[in-house]
Design a protein around this nucleic acid. Structure first.
Lengths: 152, 152
DNA sequence: CTATTACTTCAAGTCGACTTTAAGTCAAGG
DNA sequence: CCTTGACTTAAAGTCGACTTGAAGTAATAG
C-alpha cells in the first residue's frame, strides 16, 4: 500500500503518517522509488495508536507499547492506571454536568443567588473540579469542527 | 488588594491575572502608583472563570458571560449545550474505561487475540471513541505535575 | 517522451492558555 | 535617602500533535 491508500483506509492523513514514522510509531516496509510502501498490518497498528490516544496516552507513551516484532506489548498496570484516571475524570465531569444542568434551569433571579450555583463555583475555585478535565474534552471538538469546515 | 494578594487568595498566578486583564476577563479598580488594585469581588469573578474553564469553555466564550456591571450574565442554552457535551464525553470515557479495565486483566495470550480488545480497537479506529476526549483530560494532569515538581 | 500528479523532505507555522524573561519603575522599610 | 523586593510592560517562549508551505523528484497515464 502506498501512503494515500493507508490514509484512505485508516482515515489518518498522510502528513500524520509521515509524522508518526518520524516519531518511530510506524514503519514502512520499504520504498518504490522514493515512495513509502506499507504492509497491511499498518492498519492494525494505527488502530492501536488511535486507541492509545483515546485512552489519553501521549505518542511517547504509546511508542513503547507497540511491539517491534509481532503483537503489541502492553503494560497491564499502565492500563489499570489509565482506567482509574478515566474513572476520576468521569466523576468530575458528572459533577460538572449536573451543576451545569441545574444552572441552566435554576429559577434564582441571578445565578449568584443560587446556593447550588455558588457551591459549584466554590468547587471550581478550589480546584476540586480540576478545571483542565472538561476543557481538554471540548477544545479538541472545536478543532475538529474547524478542520471539517475548512476542508475546501 | 494588590495583585499578589489576589493571587494568594484565589490561587491564580499573578501572571495569569495580568493575562486575564489583557484579555478583558477581569479589571482592576485602579492603580496605586503603577500597581494594580483589585476590588474584593474579583475573587468571585475568578471563581466564575474557573467554573467556565472546568465546564470546557474557552476564555473567549467565558468573557461575554461575565456581566460588566453586577451579576454574571449566563446563557442558559449554552449551559445546556455544554452539559450535553459533557454527557457525551462521559459516555465515551466510560467505554474507554471499561475497555481498558478488561484489557488489563484479559487472559488472552496476546491482546490481539482477545475479541473484546479487538472490538475496542475497532471503536478507536473508527473514531467512535473520539480520540481527543481522554487525551485532553490526561495531558493537562501531566502539565500540572510538571509545574508542581519544577517549583524550585 | 512528457505532462501531470502524487509523492518526497525539511522547516516553519498553528492553536490556546499561559509562563518566562528582560528591562524598567517605584512603594515602603531601615 | 537609599536599597530592596515586588510590581510593571512587551515580547518571546512553551507544550503536543499535527499541518502547511516551498522546493524538488519520480511513477504513471496518455
Amino acid at each position: 500500500m502506498d501512503i494515500s491508500e493507508v490514509a484512505k483506509r485508516s482515515g489518518v492523513p498522510a502528513s500524520t503518517l509521515r509524522y508518526y514514522e518520524e516519531k518511530g510509531l510506524i514503519h514502512s516496509v520499504g520504498r518504490q522509488g522514493m515512495r513509502r510502501v506499507f504492509a497491511a498490518d499498518i492498519l492494525e497498528r494505527l488502530a492501536l495508536i488511535a486507541l492509545g490516544r483515546a485512552a489519553g496516552l501521549s505518542l511517547d507513551e504509546i511508542a513503547p507499547m507497540l511491539g517491534d516484532s509481532d503483537g503489541p506489548d502492553i503494560d497491564r498496570t499502565l492500563l489499570e492506571n489509565k482506567a482509574d484516571e478515566l474513572e476520576r475524570s468521569i466523576q468530575k465531569l458528572k459533577k460538572m454536568r449536573d451543576g451545569l444542568r441545574h444552572a441552566a434551569v435554576c429559577s434564582a433571579p441571578s445565578h449568584m443567588d443560587c446556593p447550588k450555583f455558588r457551591r459549584l463555583l466554590g468547587l471550581a475555585a478550589s480546584g476540586a473540579i480540576h478545571s483542565d478535565d472538561a476543557a481538554g474534552v471540548v477544545k479538541k471538538q472545536r478543532r475538529n469542527l474547524k478542520k471539517k469546515s475548512s476542508k475546501k
